[in-house]
């Protein structure tokens, strides 16, 4: 079990991590989600021992890892852009960690070939890594990280450079792989679809702190702070006359203004200023009298056109109120 307590990392004057607490249970997949610069990569590097914390601790099964250098921590890490060794072929990359563990060469090679098989790259053993496609490089990096059987696997935006269809397929594959192997995993990403699809729990980071930890459903339905809500695509608005609230884009009923006028309690009138087709829904941008335009997802016909006057009624379940005065709830 990984337990991070009050972790602080500074680069000179800049505070990259400002007191992070996080627990990852054995066999659990935790996604660390946040915009770029929020300290996600630094968190991974500090857990791996590549950064020296100014304060706080990283412990594995109750044992503090302070002072243990990266090469003795038995963690696996997949780097952004993969960091494959350009002077070694695919097999040479995958076998590297096993060689460092002094695994006998024949067994090491067998294990490396098995890992290549697991990631679907059997037959690529002697290819030059520079000649592989982005997806193939990603698989080599994964096989390389998995081969020494690390007790903790960490991935830093592993799907970042891949195109969308490939990413969506790999998200599912990775989750199957990690749960199948029973791996304890920390997965860093800035994409909430990716985080929700992969993780048992999601930790949302902002400016070196964790704002909220919870299951994907909890985080999606009950964002703890305005920042988390905005990051997940919620509308932040006071237009409904109920103070400042967050409203999920798919939680607003839209009707033609003429048909619904008078009947709406807590409803708001607005005008559609933009409309975009999004596979399974339309996304409308609706200008309201008070505050920023709202973004609203609409399924089913009829879809109002640009220029139409509309009446909006929010689904109470899709409305979130924030209490910024108290610290966000944190699960242990």
């Amino acid at each position: 079990m990984l337990r991070v307590r009050g972790l602080e990392v500074r680069y000179g004057d800049r505070v990259a991590l400002a007191g992070v607490d996080l627990t990852v249970d054995d066999g659990e997949i935790v996604s660390v989600l946040g915009p770029s610069g929020s300290g996600k990569s630094t968190l991974l590097r500090a857990i791996a021992g590549l950064e020296v914390p100014a304060r706080g601790s990283v412990a594995w099964d109750g044992r503090d890892l302070a002072g243990i250098p990266p090469h003795h921590r038995h963690v696996g890490m997949m780097f952004q852009q993969h960091a494959l060794f350009p002077h070694r072929d695919v097999l040479g990359n995958v076998v590297f960690g096993l060689r460092m563990q002094r695994t006998p060469p024949a067994r090491a090679e067998q294990r490396a070939r098995e890992m290549l098989d697991v990631v679907g790259l059997a037959g690529f053993e002697h290819r030059n890594v520079a000649e592989l496609s982005g997806g193939e490089q990603q698989r080599v990096a994964l096989a390389r990280a998995l081969a020494p059987a690390p007790r903790l696997l960490m991935l830093d935006e592993p799907l970042g450079s891949l195109d969308r269809p490939l990413r969506e397929r790999l998200m599912i594959e990775l989750r199957e792989l990690f749960t199948g192997l029973g791996l304890t995993t920390v997965y860093v990403t800035h994409d909430h679809d990716e985080a929700f699809a992969l993780a048992d729990r999601v930790a949302v980071m902002r400016a070196g702190r964790i704002e909220q930890v919870g299951t994907p459903l909890e985080v999606w339905q009950r964002p703890a702070t305005e920042f988390v809500a905005r990051f997940l695509g919620y509308n932040l608005t006071e237009a409904f006359g109920d103070g400042r609230v967050g409203i999920r884009p798919d939680g607003v009923h839209v009707a033609r203004a003429a048909a619904a006028s008078g009947s709406g309690v807590g409803g708001v009138d607005g005008v559609v200023v933009a409309r975009a087709f999004r596979r399974d829904h339309f996304l409308l941008r609706v200008k309201v009298a008070d505050g920023d335009p709202l973004e609203i997802a609409v399924t089913g016909a009829p879809v109002p056109a640009v220029g139409d006057a509309v009446h909006l009624v929010a689904d109470p379940d899709a409305v979130v109120r924030f209490d910024e005065g108290t610290p966000p709830p944190q699960l242990p």
Binding site: R45, H71, V75
Partner: peptide, 27 residues
Amino acid sequence: IDPRLRDAAAVLGASPARTWREIDLPI
């Protein structure tokens, strides 16, 4: 030389001296 190559080697269990021999020197 991408410093992450050295980081990757370290995480995979290479000591600093080993990293120098396995990464820096061949390149």
